[in-house]
C-alpha cells in the first residue's frame, strides 16, 4: 500500500508511457521492414529499442521507484537480467553450430 494508494487526477505517466511504447514498437517495425539497413544494424536497433521500452515500462507502469521493498525489487531485476543473459547468450552459444 502507501504510495500506490492515492489516485492522481489524470494518469499522465501512463499515457506518456503508452505513447512512447507505441512509438518505440513502430520504430522497430519500420527498422525491420522498410529501413533498408543491413541485418546486423537492424538487430542492434531492435535490441536497443526493446531495452529502452522495458525500462520505460518499469518506471511508467510498474512503479518500480514507489515500492517499499527495494531489496526484493533489486534482487528480482538482477535475477531477471541473469536469466535473460542465460537464455539469449546461452542459446546463441548452443546454436552456434548451425548458425
Amino acid at each position: 500500500m502507501g504510495a500506490n494508494d492515492h489516485h492522481e487526477s489524470f494518469p499522465w505517466k501512463h499515457i506518456i508511457g503508452f505513447l512512447l511504447s507505441l512509438v518505440l514498437t513502430f520504430a522497430a517495425l519500420w527498422a525491420a521492414l522498410s529501413s533498408g539497413l543491413p541485418l546486423k544494424t537492424v538487430i542492434v536497433i531492435i535490441v536497443v529499442f526493446a531495452v529502452i521500452q522495458a525500462s520505460l515500462q518499469l518506471f511508467m507502469f510498474m512503479h518500480v521507484t514507489e515500492s517499499d521493498s527495494g531489496r526484493i525489487q533489486t534482487f528480482n531485476m538482477a535475477y531477471s537480467f541473469f536469466i535473460a543473459v542465460v537464455v539469449v547468450a546461452g542459446s546463441i552459444w548452443v546454436m552456434q553450430f548451425v548458425l
Binding site: 536469466i83 542465460v86 546461452g90 552459444w93 548452443v94 546454436m95 552456434q96 553450430f97
Partner: peptide, 18 residues
C-alpha cells in the same frame, strides 16, 4: 535448473565445449 537444458539434446551436435 536454468543452466542444464542442453542435456536433453547432447546428440544434436553442439560440440564438445557446449
Amino acid at each position: 535448473s536454468f543452466i542444464v537444458w542442453v542435456h536433453h539434446f547432447f546428440t544434436m551436435g553442439a560440440g564438445p565445449a557446449v
